[in-house]
């Protein structure tokens, strides 16, 4: 252990194209980390968890887009900052869960540097954008030496801080489908103070047909090694109207689906106790109740 503000030495590689970046990753394999905004990578370096090589995406052109159309949905490029996403009118209107997860993320300074794709790739179990996107649904677009592939966010997180992205692949985009009519989504988190990492975060997407839930996606973070979907809760919701009875069952079911731990931010017991309440409240919030 040491204390230092001097960055350990590393090679800073600044590719000019996606291809060049992918080639570098192919060559360096696990000995490189990818840096978008740097708000996580640089901190990791000073804490002694850095890589010998850092590949910066800063000079790859045209990766900082946030684009929406009603057919293909939302596309967020790897260099689009949290603030860009938070400021986007389509995101605000159609994806309130994603909007909130970006708008409350970190501090104004880190939101101006950090990216949504970076938040996804860091794979922190408490990542706020992860929670929102896991609920809304979407795909991570990966580029590797063998070309392009898309991985559903549902299959993206494998275990603690580990994703389906291979060491020679680069995440270039997040794709989120356009919300169907009657679909709504919302995100909430619990923290110790405003500027903090989540103790617990929750998000839902409810596809409604009148008062009945057609489909539900419920995600929760910081209560397991990865952000997870609450499948039993989703099953409880599917085909039902939201009644007090259903909500009460959900409150009771949530703790059976999570495996929280004690840490500096909270306790396992507390997380178990509030997770159900948070899910109940976010369902009501999504429905505008």
């Amino acid at each position: 252990m040491a204390s230092s503000r001097i960055l350990p030495e590393f090679e800073l590689l600044i590719p000019q194209s996606i291809k060049e970046a992918v080639d570098l990753l192919g060559k360096l394999k696990n000995k490189a980390s990818v840096m978008a905004g740097g708000t996580d990578v640089v901190i990791s370096c000073t804490k002694g968890f850095g890589s010998p090589n850092v590949i910066s995406l800063a000079e790859i052109p045209a990766l900082d887009y946030v684009e929406y159309d009603s057919k293909s949905g939302l596309r967020i490029g790897a260099m689009a900052t949290l603030q860009q996403v938070a400021d986007n009118a389509d995101v605000q209107k159609r994806y309130p869960a994603l909007w909130k997860s970006a708008a409350i993320n970190g501090t104004p300074q880190t939101r101006n540097m950090g990216t949504v794709v970076g938040n996804i790739m860091r794979a922190s179990p408490s990542g706020d954008c992860i929670c929102a996107i896991l609920a809304i649904g979407g795909k991570v677009v990966l580029r590797g030496s063998k070309g392009k592939r898309e991985v559903s966010i549902d299959d993206f997180y494998i275990k603690y801080r580990e994703t389906a992205c291979k060491s020679d692949e680069l995440a270039v985009e997040i794709k989120i489908p356009a919300p169907a009519a009657g679909s709504c989504n919302a995100f909430a988190r619990m923290t110790r103070t405003t500027l903090d990492l989540s103790k617990v975060n929750v998000a839902v997407r409810l596809d409604m047909s009148g008062k009945t839930v057609k489909e539900a996606r419920v995600a929760i973070g910081a209560v397991a090694p990865t952000t997870i979907r609450l499948k039993k809760v989703e099953a409880l919701l599917k085909g039902k109207q939201i009644t007090d009875d259903v909500l009460q069952k959900i409150v009771e079911t949530v703790p059976t689906e999570i495996k929280p731990i004690d840490d500096v931010r909270s306790t396992a017991e507390y997380r178990r106790d509030v997770a159900g309440i948070m899910v109940k409240r976010i369902i009501l919030e999504a429905l505008g109740k």
């Binding site: 110790r192 103070t193 405003t194 500027l195 903090d196 990492l197 500096v264």
Partner: peptide, 16 residues
């Protein structure tokens, strides 16, 4: 010490 920084030691900020 497990919380020797402002990430994990929480003072109230202006918005709190």
């Amino acid at each position: 010490v497990l919380n020797n920084d402002f990430t994990d030691y929480k003072m109230l900020g202006p918005s709190d």
